[in-house]
Simulated assay, not measured.
Amino acid sequence: MDGGRGPGDVDLSVPNVARMYDYYLGGKDNYAADRALADQVLEVAPQTPALAQENRGFLQRAVRHLAGAAGIDQFVDIGAGLPTLENTHEVAQQVEPGAHVVYVDNDPVVLAHGRALLEGAAGTRVIQGDVRRPDEIFGSAELTGLIDLARPVAILLVSVLHCVRDDEDPWKIVRRLREMIAPGSHVAISHITAADHAANATAGADVYRRASTGMTLRPYPAIRRFFDGFELLDPGLVRLTEWRPREGAEPRRDLPTWYFCGVGRKH
């Protein structure tokens, strides 16, 4: 199927960021065009697979905290990408077996793979939606049929907001999401930056301009603004490896600061 048409008549010759991410994670749901462009990223940013793994680790630790200590049993994973090992619903339901999870993505290939792989998974749904249109996501009967918006919910925006350009006002998007969720809800965000090794990070982002979605690297203050109106939980907005590492785990210190991440709570 490489180079042909995919689900929803998607042109598989156009590299897709979700499938490139799947490639970095060692997955199999990617095509020749994705691998070719991902390999170009690796030429200028060879740390990318390790950072993808750490980003996944942040997601999993955040979900464990939210389903456990925070008492959240509803999750909306926006820009979820392709299912891989230890998905959001698997992690959440290990802690809270009754947890409900809605995965949201706007890519037909991701949706087709996700629905096939998660068919029959209890309390789980895959729906089409674009983070740029939050009202459509949260007004969807598919979402509200599983998620009770009168109760606290966790919104996961992991590695997605940097796919939204400045002129699309991602901060307004997050403000709108905050308005639509109940007090006690949480948001988890990870976002690409260029705090060090900036030339490599910028070069990698430039390569992504040839993919289905570009990347906007933002400095720390711009990423911190996404948490305006939320109580930022300890340890704050930090590197991927620094957000509540598992007990006994030694955080990697050899990776560049190309991501910041954090979890906020709405009062």
Score class of each variant (00 low, 15 high):
19 R>K: 15
178 R>G: 03
22 D>C: 13
243 W>I: 04
60 Q>C: 12
191 H>I: 06
2 D>P: 14
149 L>I: 11
194 A>F: 08
181 I>M: 13
33 A>I: 02
71 G>C: 12
46 P>F: 08
189 I>Y: 02
129 G>D: 01
35 R>Y: 10
55 N>Q: 05
125 R>G: 05
3 G>A: 10
145 G>I: 09
48 T>I: 11
131 V>M: 02
47 Q>M: 15
49 P>I: 11
192 I>H: 01
198 A>V: 12
110 V>I: 10
245 P>R: 03
266 K>C: 09
165 R>P: 07
241 T>G: 04
258 W>A: 05
102 V>D: 04
265 R>H: 11
115 R>V: 06
104 V>T: 06
203 A>T: 09
258 W>S: 02
225 R>I: 04
118 L>P: 01
189 I>D: 00
155 I>F: 10
161 L>D: 02
106 N>Y: 04
248 G>A: 14
96 E>N: 15
153 V>I: 13
208 Y>N: 13
98 G>V: 09
32 A>M: 08
252 R>F: 10
156 L>K: 07
97 P>R: 10
201 A>Y: 06
107 D>S: 09
17 V>N: 07
211 A>D: 02
88 T>M: 08
222 A>N: 04
81 G>D: 07
222 A>C: 00
222 A>Y: 00
42 L>N: 08
63 V>L: 05
129 G>A: 11
99 A>C: 14
193 T>F: 06
13 S>K: 09
13 S>E: 10
188 A>H: 01
71 G>F: 13
174 V>W: 05
176 R>G: 07
248 G>P: 08
160 V>C: 06
54 E>T: 06
122 A>D: 15
233 L>Q: 03
123 G>R: 03
177 L>S: 05
209 R>E: 15
193 T>K: 06
114 G>E: 05
239 R>V: 04
166 D>I: 14
230 F>A: 03
164 V>A: 08
244 R>I: 13
264 G>T: 00
114 G>Q: 08
114 G>S: 15
263 V>D: 00
44 V>Q: 03
216 T>F: 06
132 R>W: 12
